[in-house]
Design a protein around this nucleic acid. Sequence first.
DNA 1: CCTGAATAGTTTAGGTATAAAGTAATCACG
DNA 2: CGTGATTACTTTATACCTAAACTATTCAGG
Lengths: 179, 179
Amino acid sequence: MKPYKLSPEEASAQQLWEALLRASLSVRGEVRELFAQWNLTGAQWRVLMVLAAAPDEGLRQSEIGEQMLVTGGNVTGLIDRLEEAGLVCRQAHPDDRRVVLATLTPRGQKVYQELAPAFFGRLHRVFSGVPDSSREPLRIALGELTQNVQDNRAAGACSGSDPGGPGPTEREDVGPCGK
Amino acid sequence: MKPYKLSPEEASAQQLWEALLRASLSVRGEVRELFAQWNLTGAQWRVLMVLAAAPDEGLRQSEIGEQMLVTGGNVTGLIDRLEEAGLVCRQAHPDDRRVVLATLTPRGQKVYQELAPAFFGRLHRVFSGVPDSSREPLRIALGELTQNVQDNRAAGACSGSDPGGPGPTEREDVGPCGK
DNA sequence: CCTGAATAGTTTAGGTATAAAGTAATCACG
DNA sequence: CGTGATTACTTTATACCTAAACTATTCAGG
């Protein structure tokens, strides 16, 4: 198995990506159990946070999706479950009947208020190993990375900056185990 | 809606977590379309990478799960689909009949060899905005963060370092929309 | 007004992920 | 040897997430 020799820059990018992925997976796992105590999931908590920071009239589902970087179909399901749990409520937009405005119910606000200290406290402990002096640079670097990806995406959508043709898309004639 | 006043350290942790999450989500999205051209997903590609770097006899499913930071049940499904696609093959362990060894089929090796340059190249472009001088510190910081989480988890499992009692776990008496 | 394009949300199909329960094989030890 | 605990994997139930197709509404011109 010749292991595809990476160039130095590619290797560095790969290591960075691996580290980024593992870090985010680890933190995700670390806070998951906390949410479980409130019968919540990470995604549901994220919706609560977004709505808690939103104006009183609430947010469109599309706005929630943008802030969470998830698709509209996903938001539909998320709000479905939160509505069923009585934490969020859908209201019709007064001027545009296509739009759904989501707001926290009193119950949702209560859950947010109660869980917030535990959540942010846990997060504080998780990140306690990162020295104060490293936090700003780290945050900046991650923000620039995110921005970079989004810019590349916007640019690549118009100009054909991807010369390589697409790979084989079919997958018939499945061979047996290689031995 | 009083917005739960965060302490400065909590706010800094929250910003870091938000930046980390958004960065990893962005990169994930960026490479997704590349995999789609090969009828692959990000998770499936990750399995191929792990197996490509593995010894010839292959890896146990549990080892794959450890490297990917996912549960065993997840690995079962992943390997199921890759096996069905003819990219991976399950073999019995010669000495321990509980163990399944997963290896790349010739077809799987071929797909890996073909997709690797495109993948690492795209990754290189994604991370091109991160200056060389920042990469090592960034990687180190992310690695320490991951380590920190895992240590905390191991420690917290034994000693009761989590004083706060669990929150309300029930969710009946759902109230109507708060207006 | 009418019609076609755009927009907001929902639905559907399929892959990803967990926790928890279940099955089969191995191991430890009396 | 046999039995209970452990280990490796699978199964089940549920939630997350995407892309793509669909519905309903609004908007822009003619």
